[in-house]
């Protein structure tokens, strides 16, 4: 990926904490003195629907939206959401995904099928896949809610050129103080898991 431009598409299920992840990345970009745009989704789809947010970092970012084939990284909070987001990924891009499966209502009611072995089947395409059980890591750190920060830890280990201190400062500024300890652990465990 180009050093001077970074498009990260975050995808997950409403309620999983994707908004915090995008704010975190926005804060990182500001600290680096880069231009940045973050697009969020509010309202209806937050109720358990599929939620996409975009983070674009560069010298002069125009559109806040990551459109078809524009993402350097897809950061997916759920297994099948990574598949859904593929149309946004550049050939040669990277998918970082939580292997957790959350069944959508049409699957629960039997109207649709949840495909098997999504992480395995994704690898082999013309892009890189980093698949980890971020939920288990988060639970080990003390809270299932930290899945987002575990994934950000993984991301920080994968994208080059950003000093670890910047990541840590941003973590402190976006996470509420009383949850900071757990989140710090989640972030470090994410980094470790990526190695």
């Amino acid at each position: 990926m180009k050093q001077d431009e970074l498009n990260i598409l975050i995808i997950g299920v409403g309620g999983q904490g994707t908004l915090l992840a995008s704010r975190f990345l926005g804060d990182v970009a500001l600290r680096l003195g880069r231009d940045v745009k973050v697009s969020e989704v509010h309202g209806m789809s937050q109720r358990g629907g599929s939620v996409e947010t975009c983070v674009r970092i560069g010298e002069n970012v125009a559109s806040p939206i990551i459109d078809r084939g524009m993402a350097d990284v897809v950061l997916s909070f759920e297994s099948v959401e990574a598949l859904r987001a593929l149309e946004y990924l550049k050939p040669g891009g990277t998918v970082i995904m939580n292997t957790q499966e959350i069944l959508p209502m049409p699957v629960i009611s039997g109207a649709a099928v949840y495909p098997d072995n999504v992480p395995e089947r994704l690898s082999g395409g013309n892009f890189r896949v980093i698949a980890l059980d971020a939920l288990s890591i988060a639970e080990k750190c003390g809270s299932a809610k930290c899945v987002n920060v575990v994934l950000l830890g993984i991301l920080s280990a994968v994208i080059p050129g950003i000093a670890p201190d910047v990541w840590r400062q941003s973590l402190e500024s976006v996470v509420p103080a009383k949850l900071l300890e757990t989140n710090r652990r989640a972030f470090e465990e994410g980094i470790k898991a990526a190695e």
Binding site: G49, L83, M105, A112
Partner: peptide, 9 residues
Amino acid sequence: APMRPPTMC
């Protein structure tokens, strides 16, 4: 990827 419409919580 199966559709994931919003649902009641």
